[in-house]
Design a protein around this nucleic acid. Sequence first.
DNA 1: GTCGGCATGTAACTCGTTACATGATTCT
DNA 2: AGAATCATGTAACGAGTTACATGCCGAC
Lengths: 180, 180
Amino acid sequence: MNSLAYAILGVVSRTPVSGYDLGKRLELLWAANLSQIYPILSKLEEKELVRYELIEQIGKPNKKKYYVTEKGTQKLRTWIQEIPAEPIIRDEFIIKFYSIWLTDSEVAIQLLNNRKKIYLKKQQHFSEEVKKMEEDPTIDPTDKTLNHFSRYLLLTRRIRIFQFELDWCDDVLRLINQHN
Amino acid sequence: MNSLAYAILGVVSRTPVSGYDLGKRLELLWAANLSQIYPILSKLEEKELVRYELIEQIGKPNKKKYYVTEKGTQKLRTWIQEIPAEPIIRDEFIIKFYSIWLTDSEVAIQLLNNRKKIYLKKQQHFSEEVKKMEEDPTIDPTDKTLNHFSRYLLLTRRIRIFQFELDWCDDVLRLINQHN
DNA sequence: GTCGGCATGTAACTCGTTACATGATTCT
DNA sequence: AGAATCATGTAACGAGTTACATGCCGAC
């Protein structure tokens, strides 16, 4: 049982999904490839933490809809209470930026502009997700007792992070262009 | 040649170091274990991107001081100009927070307070590093032509990130404690 | 007619972590 | 007395990525 297995349990606990769907829903939590997801789902099923229902579809391939079991919810509940591992960031940009002194400022500017572009796109994507929640009359993101609450906070958190990154890029660009 | 190999080149390009030292200096860029660093150093040496000098010490074990070669600097320079891979964040806290609705608010509060404690400690550590740079009369972090510039920006960036995280925790704690 | 989405999976490989091995010195 | 720091490395394992395999549908 690794972090990804618990992330999967966390998603399945909210609403039954297929492995394919999980690939997208994990984006907010712990990005993973389908080739990692499918074997874990099988193991979770073996351990009786989830079970699935075969959904036959026409025009589309059949799919397995996974449900959490009581055992699964319980396992997740106890895991949450353990102290989480420290966050790890793998950001190639940082390595490149660290060595920009070896090149000229043009390279740095390109690097920063590219980063801005990426974060702008991500921010737009997550803003749409937030909008969907806010416009849905059946969802109240401020109700702390419901699962929407934490998802909403994580979505807005993401947008804030992207804004942070965009601001940082602008700050550095300003410093670089400030020819004194 | 993976990201870590370039991170190592980036550190060695600034000042010759031992593998053991690299373990600490990579913290700002790309955290890695020594068991990963040593084999990569050997491969970099094979490819003539770095070379080393054996330093004999008394009281301490001997060490290998690694230097970058012209070939190494060149390799790094061209790599910087390629578009970096998108950043990856592995944060278990997020998975746990996502599922707090399965438990009571006590668990969420503990989770947040623990996170605050961790980020406070990290912030202090990096603040000390910044202080060292600022108090060193031989270093001018605002000089864009020197390598101190980018290191200083990455250090202050880190402190900003930690502040962001601390603020976010406080915001969420306020929301949770707001019993309405 | 090719590309992306839907859908599930396996195999090979690379990357990263933990454990092991050694051994002196210094701090608590 | 035991832990931490300095210093280098290997071995085993777990996590993550890329490539492969299959196949239908709809859009451009």
